[in-house]
């Protein structure tokens, strides 16, 4: 199995990557730290899983060379599962990227990362309901301290492609 870590710049993808693979990818608190992809291995229930730390991208319509790398990586690995990392305090625009990836038919797991920051900002997210509407696993995480990472990994196997029509129906239509 191959898993891609995708999301906006500076949402903590590299932190996940290092925690999951024990690798040493540079992490910083500024967007654009990762400009090339890094591959690593982790074990889930005895199975070897290849994990790829993909440069941050705002959408699947690349704006710079690092985003080119990200989108090309996604399109080259049609059989991949995608962990979409979302900054929980800026959930709407994170969902935009997540939806784009879901629409292309990839099985997705959503990590609502920086859960602690969202909490401090008095933003409350009903993750269960979000999961029900989207039909993909949604896990609140704080990657930097490791909270939620185990659950995130255990939910990977239940990720399946979802029809966007179903999401629209669950959300109560578009009109």
């Amino acid at each position: 199995m191959k898993v891609l870590l995708m999301g906006h710049p500076n949402v903590g993808k590299s932190v996940f990557f290092n925690r999951l693979t024990g690798a040493n990818v540079t992490e910083s608190n500024y967007p654009g730290t990762t400009v090339d992809y890094t591959k690593g291995w982790m074990k889930i229930e005895g199975e070897d899983v290849e994990l790829v730390d993909v440069p941050g991208t705002f959408s699947l319509d690349p704006k710079d060379k690092a985003e080119d790398v990200a989108v090309a990586m996604l399109h080259e690995t049609k059989d991949a599962k995608v962990i979409t990392v979302i900054d929980a305090s800026k959930i709407e625009r994170g969902l935009y990227l997540a939806l784009e990836i879901i629409e292309e038919g990839y099985p997705v797991v959503i990590a609502l990362n920086m859960w602690d920051v969202a909490w401090d900002k008095n933003i409350r997210i009903d993750a269960r309901n979000l999961e029900k509407i989207l039909g993909v696993p949604v896990v609140p995480t704080t990657a930097i301290s490791g909270e939620g990472i185990k659950e995130l990994v255990s939910r990977l196997k239940s990720a399946k492609p979802v029809e966007v029509d179903d999401i629209i129906a669950n959300a109560g239509g578009l009109t």
């Binding site: 939806l99 629409e103 409350r124 009903d126 029509d165 959300a171 109560g172 578009l174």
Partner: peptide, 29 residues
Amino acid sequence: MTLGLEERWTLIDRISKATVTFGKYEHTL
């Protein structure tokens, strides 16, 4: 099926209304 830009944002708006509540934001140090 893929959505258009407008449709996608409308959908996100719907989803976020159903799942997110924004409390009063306090200016911190």
